[in-house]
Design a protein around this nucleic acid. Structure first.
Lengths: 263, 263
DNA sequence: CAGTGGTCTAGACCACACT
DNA sequence: GTGTGGTCTAGACCACTGA
């Protein structure tokens, strides 16, 4: 479906099926080299979130490899939620705009299975120098500017999560409280970040522990001081393993739990 | 490497590459049918944990399909940690005896990255009628017999996890405290269960919340009553989505955290 | 209908582990 | 060397989507 043809790709592999290792040194299979090229294209913003990428056949021709090799590269990227395949239609750049991706990183679930209306209540948004912990999490220097957001997440209008979000100011410097308020219904901030700042969140790590509620969190979540809360710290990455977001969230787990599948 | 040849496999596909759907109704690709056969063989205990299964070529011949089709079936099963491929050696049945599988389901990590010596201190082991919650978790009837184990998990000799473990008595009826005491160094119970009872744990679900320490847990974990603890409830499955274990563990998270990667 | 991803095959060769 | 899994190709056909 005729996408621009001159997307920046390094010149196709000069060797045909001969990109295989000569002997052994740091051997990388062809499909992985293709994957790297595609990753680089994604990372460079070659295609927008949600956009259709060229067909397997076209990519194969462009790279001078067989369709099966391109397929294997795309397979891996689909497994990593970087691309989404749709039979009969094509392969698309994964996006948080996709309904299936909403709340992809939110592991808190109601004890009864009921679906709940989520709503984000932004509290504050300001630029702030990174303290040591935040700097470490964002891989920046202490003192570097960050955008700090405080917000409350409500499930069916009941406050369940109170969290502080720290973002690299170089990317999110223009973020304002007014913008967040406008997005309060679309609880998925990542969708907004993607559309407004062009940053796609790819994966995240969470570290969780049990803590006593301090005054601020207790008040916001409407629980007694010292009540047990789940403290969830999340580091979120965009392409190329670049951390761009750091969250500290206090979760009220009276009627909710953190769900996880172990394989 | 000449494994027994007459393992129970349903007669090979009668149609060659024609097992494809005639038209559409409940279409299942060939490789998935192969996968089902392999799953059935695993579930039936055809091969022991850690055993070498026949080579892709041999399976292909046996099933009357191409090697690539067998490969795709095995690929999926390797992704699900049911099989382990080792280049040059063969494909093996995944086992908790494999060092890489030790503590596979344990998500608690020290805040500093130090590796810690783990040790299991069994406290009690008795047969007990399932209460409603346990019965639901194990998919049995309330009142059905279960084996209940209490134990303490120590990291570097400090008690960090206090948990109750409930097992289907039909399988684990013979378990005794003495057996558990003998295994106290090999903190991975799953390895023991696999070798002693022939039950392989495949996957698990965890539900986590923050709670106040009650007397029993507080004493065992050496924390004040009412201190915040992580309550981790785990349901563990063997083949064919059959739940066989249910745990309620209290985790002390002063110097440890629950780690999770979100993709 | 044409175009896309999805499946399957047959055959070649590479990388790795053992003997 | 032999046997295993791992990669790559070329070509055929199926299933799905949308014009």
């Amino acid at each position: 479906m005729a996408l621009p043809r001159n997307i920046v790709f390094p010149p196709r592999q000069t060797e045909q099926p001969a990109a295989r290792s000569g002997g052994n040194p740091t051997f990388s299979p062809l499909y992985r080299q293709i994957k790297d090229l595609l990753l680089r294209a994604l990372s460079a913003g070659e295609w927008a979130a949600g956009a259709l990428i060229p067909s397997e056949t076209e990519l194969a021709a462009r790279f001078g490899v067989s369709q099966g090799t391109v397929r294997k590269a795309i397979d891996e990227m689909a497994d990593e939620n970087l691309l989404v395949r749709r039979q009969g239609k094509g392969t698309f750049v994964a996006s948080h705009d996709d309904p299936r991706a909403h709340y992809r990183f939110l592991r808190l679930r109601p004890d009864d299975g009921r679906v709940e209306q989520k709503r984000s209540l932004p509290i504050s948004c300001d630029v702030r120098a990174a303290d040591a912990a935040t700097a470490a999490a964002l891989a920046i220097q202490p003192g570097d500017p960050t955008v700090a957001v405080e917000r409350l997440l409500c499930f069916d209008e009941r406050p369940i999560i109170f969290e502080a979000i720290f973002l690299r100011a170089e990317i999110f410097g223009e973020l304002t409280l007014a913008m967040l308020e406008q997005e309060s219904r679309a609880a998925s901030l990542y969708r907004f970040f993607e559309q407004r700042f062009g940053v796609r969140m790819i994966r995240a790590e969470e570290r969780t522990r049990a803590v006593r509620a301090e005054a601020a969190a207790a008040e916001r979540l409407n629980v007694p001081i010292s009540a047990p809360l789940l403290l969830v710290e999340r580091r979120t990455y965009t392409y190329a393993d670049r951390p761009v977001e750091w969250r500290r969230g206090f979760y009220a787990t009276d009627q909710h739990h953190y769900y996880n599948e172990l394989a």
